[in-house]
C-alpha cells in the first residue's frame, strides 16, 4: 500500500482525508486507483497532476516506481514560463 498525500482542494473528494492509501507500485497505478476509489478526483487527474516522490517532482512519469516507505505527494501539473 502506498500512502498518498493530497493537497487541500482534493480532500473534498476523499471525505476530508489528507492522506489516502492505495495499492500501487507506479505513479500511473496511483492515479488509476485514486480515480477508481475517489471518482471526484478524476477531473483533476485528467487535467494533469504531478507527483513528488521523496521530494523529487515527477511531472508525468507513469512508470515511475514507488518503493515502500517513500513519501508520495500529489501536486498540480507543473507549469513554467
Amino acid at each position: 500500500m502506498v500512502k498518498v498525500k493530497l493537497w487541500g482542494t482534493l480532500r473534498h473528494w476523499t471525505d476530508g482525508q489528507a492522506e489516502v492509501e492505495v495499492e500501487a507500485a507506479t505513479f500511473k497505478e496511483v492515479l488509476d486507483r485514486l480515480s477508481e476509489l475517489y471518482p471526484g478526483l478524476a477531473p483533476q487527474i485528467r487535467r494533469g497532476v504531478s507527483m513528488s516522490l521523496d521530494g523529487v517532482i515527477y511531472r508525468e512519469a507513469w512508470f515511475q516506481e514507488i518503493k515502500p516507505g517513500q513519501e508520495v505527494v500529489l501536486m498540480p501539473y507543473m507549469q513554467g514560463g
Binding site: W7, T9, P76
Partner: peptide, 21 residues
C-alpha cells in the same frame, strides 16, 4: 468553473485551490 470551485461563488470564479498543513 471547475469542479473545485465551491457553489455560490460568482460565475467568474473558475478555479480554486488549497494547500498547506
Amino acid at each position: 468553473a471547475l469542479e473545485n470551485v465551491p457553489a455560490g461563488m460568482s460565475e467568474n470564479v473558475t478555479n480554486a485551490c488549497e494547500f498547506g498543513h
